[in-house]
């Protein structure tokens, strides 16, 4: 498995020189033959079999089946007789790209997921830093911050749908300031409504991970920074943030994937068929499959 082109070249060269196999070649890298080093010899590879079989069953077989099925002319009604289904090559993919709004939905999903993830990041960081120092009622504030995150997406969607309706509380509140917005749950604004609600419900996720990152900063680091006379921004920028890089990167990735896969929120907020501005990928998939 470790055999690569350069290695075989270097191995061939000494033979031509008449030198014994295995001596250090000119390339500087010791030539190694498979299974030669003592700790590689006689490894009981068969012990990997249970894991390997599981991998094949759980990942490889379904993957192969999925690829095969994607090349057949099938729908939900003929699924049970898929062995008899005609092979149609890439027709399904061509149809998805040309006759459905797949590309548009991917665009909507990706931009929605990215915007929501990027906006929630500073909110979560700010909230975590604000509750880092001890103050009276900190425990309560921290708990309250988690409320949007623990509410089921269905509940969040239903409440926001009621609030955002034409003539609902959001419209009324804005109207009292003289602002008259159009529809929230349909039309171009619906995209921003979706982002708004997603931000509202998902920022505590960043807050949680950043808080965990902050707890990992040693007390001595804070002290040292204070002794060196670092002001809050300098301290935050050069002392604290480097500690948070890991958790934040993780949070951005998880949050992005979570947003892309989110079905419940857009489904409950906008219903099906979805308005075209919020026809995200999971909803399109749902519509197309049923």
């Amino acid at each position: 498995m470790t055999t690569t082109t350069p290695a075989s070249v270097t191995r061939a060269a000494p033979q031509a020189d008449g030198r014994p196999l295995g001596s250090t070649p000119t390339g500087g890298r010791p030539a190694r033959r498979r299974g030669r080093s003592p700790n590689e010899r006689n490894r009981p590879f068969w012990m990997l079999a249970p894991g390997g079989i599981l991998m094949i069953l759980v990942i490889v077989v379904p993957l192969i089946l999925a690829i095969v099925i994607s090349l057949l002319d099938l729908d939900q009604y003929t699924l049970r007789s898929w062995l008899q289904a005609p092979f149609i090559g890439l027709q399904n993919f061509i149809e998805a790209l040309t006759r459905s709004t797949l590309l548009r939905s991917i665009g909507i999903s990706v931009s929605f997921a990215a915007i929501a993830a990027v906006v929630t990041l500073p909110i979560g960081v700010a909230a975590a830093i604000a509750t880092q120092n001890k103050f009276v009622g900190r425990g309560l504030v921290r708990s309250i911050f988690l409320i949007p995150y623990v509410l089921p997406a269905f509940v969040v969607g239903t409440v926001w749908r009621t609030m955002l309706q034409p003539g609902g509380v959001v419209d009324d509140a804005l109207a009292s300031f003289g602002i008259h917005t159009g529809l929230w749950l349909n039309g171009p604004q619906s995209f921003w409504a979706l982002i708004l609600v997603q931000i509202w419900s998902s920022w505590p996720f960043f807050y949680l991970l950043v808080l965990a990152g902050l707890q990992a900063v040693d007390h001595e680091v804070h002290e040292a920074a204070a002794i060196d006379g670092a002001l809050w921004w300098t301290k935050l920028r050069y002392v604290i943030f480097p500690y948070l890089r890991g958790p934040i990167a993780l949070a951005v990735i998880i949050s992005f994937l979570h947003n892309i896969n989110g079905f419940t929120l857009p489904f409950v907020l906008f219903g099906v068929p979805a308005p075209q501005d919020v026809d995200v990928l999971p909803v399109l998939t749902y519509i197309t499959s049923f």
Binding site: G182, L183, N186, G187, P188, P273, A274, P275
Partner: peptide, 10 residues
């Protein structure tokens, strides 16, 4: 109907 609602709203 769903896709007509923005126009209807106007």
């Amino acid at each position: 109907v769903v896709q007509s609602i923005p126009s209807l709203s106007n």
